[in-house]
Amino acid sequence: MTNHHRSEISLHVNGVTHRLGVDNRTTLLDTLRENLGHTGPKKGCDHGQCGACTVLLDGRRVVSCLTLAVAAEGAEVTTVEGLAGDGELLPLQQAFIRFDGFQCGYCTSGQLCSAVGMLAEHAAGWPSSVTADVSPDGPTPVLDAAEVRERMSGNLCRCGAYPSIVRAVLETEAAG
């Protein structure tokens, strides 16, 4: 008998394809953590209110706690574990260490994935809520501290590493 409450899916995570059966209720976050051993993404609120579970889905940052695994079938998922290729840390990851962009580290994987997605969004010319003029005909908004803060506001940090995170992102961006 078919169980309508479960699905067989393929998930592509950090370049590896997994075939697995999931409870339709299971979020991408819980699937990554409990089924696939990717505990980098963290559950801070499970309601899209903190950003600790942020991953990249087909290159765009999303909260994995409100993404159903079954709905992510076929998508390319990148978690914090997949950011560094071949063991070499991204400049952004190195900058987080150098500028001490974390304390407890619990929000860090979300901050990093979010920053990677955010930098791509900015490079694509997307405005933000603090962009003075959203008109597409003006110059591309410069990624200054205010822009980084606004664009990263979906990632809460209770230790208060915000200034160091902003600095790490800006330094990484400046270094190209």
Binding site: G48, G51, T54, L57, R60, R61, V62, V63, L66, T67, S114, G117, M118, E121, P127, S128, S129, T131, V134, R151, M152, S153, G154, N155
Partner: peptide
């Protein structure tokens, strides 16, 4: 501007 004022970058992508 209204859309950009809502939620977060992650949630707006979804």
């Amino acid at each position: 501007q209204a859309v950009l004022a809502g939620a977060s970058g992650q949630l707006r992508n979804m």
